[in-house]
Structure formats: C-alpha cells, structure tokens
Amino acid sequence: MNTPGTDMRNVILLAALLLAGCTITKNPEVVGGNKLTGMVRLGFNDPALFNAKADPYLAQGTATRQCQEWGFATAENYGQPIKTCSVISGTQCLNESVILEYQCRGFAVPQNAGW
C-alpha cells in the first residue's frame, strides 16, 4: 500500500535519474588567452545533473578565429579540459566551469601582402 507522497517521491527520483544521464552540447566562448604565447582559453559551464560537452568543431573554429586575429594560421587542442567547481552547496558541486586550451600554430599571410 502506497503512503501519501510516495508516488511523488518516485516521480522526482525518476526525473533526477533521467536528468543525470542527459548530455548537452555547449558552444564554448573565448574567456582568455595570451597573444605572446599563442594560447587561447575557451570556457563553458556544466550545470549539476547534466553532462555538458563542447562541440569539438565549434570549439576548434572559435579558437582558430581568435588565433587568426592574432596573426596565426590555426589552433590545436592543447591538453585536457580544466574543470573547477564554481558553485558549491554543502558538499555538492552545483556548477562546474570548464576551460579548454588551444595553442595557436603557424603564421597567417595577410591577403594584401603583395606576393
């Protein structure tokens, strides 16, 4: 026999389990970098109960555009994502900040170089 509220608890538990497996795609934005060393940092947030992933093509394109603004030809992924808990409640991390690093490579030849 179900007690009052048991059905609601089951629904909430089921919803939490379903959300825990959700993967969402994020479009990381430039959050920093260093023109001198050619290092671009992209970032996005990963909320609790979600599994956020960056779209690798969008991230590569964003990093390459930043590198090209600095005079480089392209960007290559550098290292592993850096994850830092940005919102904590008790012992639970409610939001992770994810940083992706890219190394600028090569030199872009300006179109008006007169070659």
Score class of each variant (00 low, 15 high):
2 N>P: 09
3 T>D: 13
6 T>C: 06
7 D>H: 15
7 D>I: 14
9 R>E: 15
11 V>P: 05
12 I>A: 14
12 I>R: 12
12 I>N: 15
12 I>S: 14
13 L>K: 12
14 L>V: 07
15 A>N: 15
15 A>F: 07
15 A>H: 14
18 L>D: 05
19 L>E: 12
21 G>I: 02
22 C>D: 03
24 I>C: 03
26 K>T: 02
26 K>G: 00
27 N>G: 08
30 V>E: 01
31 V>L: 10
33 G>E: 00
34 N>D: 14
36 L>C: 03
36 L>Y: 09
37 T>R: 13
38 G>H: 09
38 G>C: 07
39 M>E: 09
39 M>G: 02
39 M>Y: 05
41 R>A: 14
43 G>H: 01
45 N>Q: 09
45 N>W: 02
45 N>A: 09
46 D>K: 08
46 D>H: 08
46 D>C: 14
48 A>K: 08
49 L>Q: 07
51 N>W: 08
53 K>C: 05
53 K>Y: 09
53 K>T: 14
53 K>I: 12
53 K>M: 10
54 A>P: 03
54 A>I: 07
55 D>Q: 14
55 D>N: 14
56 P>T: 09
56 P>M: 11
57 Y>L: 10
59 A>H: 01
60 Q>A: 08
60 Q>I: 04
60 Q>W: 08
61 G>W: 01
61 G>L: 03
63 A>E: 01
64 T>V: 12
64 T>Y: 03
64 T>I: 05
64 T>R: 10
67 C>W: 00
67 C>T: 01
68 Q>L: 06
68 Q>E: 07
70 W>N: 09
74 T>R: 09
75 A>C: 10
75 A>I: 06
75 A>Q: 04
76 E>S: 11
76 E>M: 12
77 N>C: 02
77 N>T: 06
78 Y>N: 12
79 G>E: 05
79 G>A: 03
79 G>Y: 05
80 Q>G: 04
80 Q>N: 15
81 P>V: 06
82 I>D: 08
83 K>W: 09
83 K>F: 10
84 T>Y: 02
86 S>A: 01
87 V>A: 03
88 I>G: 00
88 I>C: 00
89 S>E: 05
89 S>H: 07
90 G>C: 03
91 T>V: 04
92 Q>K: 05
93 C>A: 06
94 L>I: 00
94 L>F: 02
95 N>M: 06
95 N>K: 06
96 E>V: 02
98 V>Q: 08
99 I>Y: 11
99 I>Q: 12
101 E>C: 13
102 Y>T: 02
104 C>P: 09
105 R>N: 13
105 R>V: 15
106 G>C: 07
107 F>L: 02
109 V>K: 15
109 V>I: 12
110 P>I: 01
111 Q>C: 02
112 N>F: 10
113 A>K: 06
114 G>H: 11
114 G>C: 04
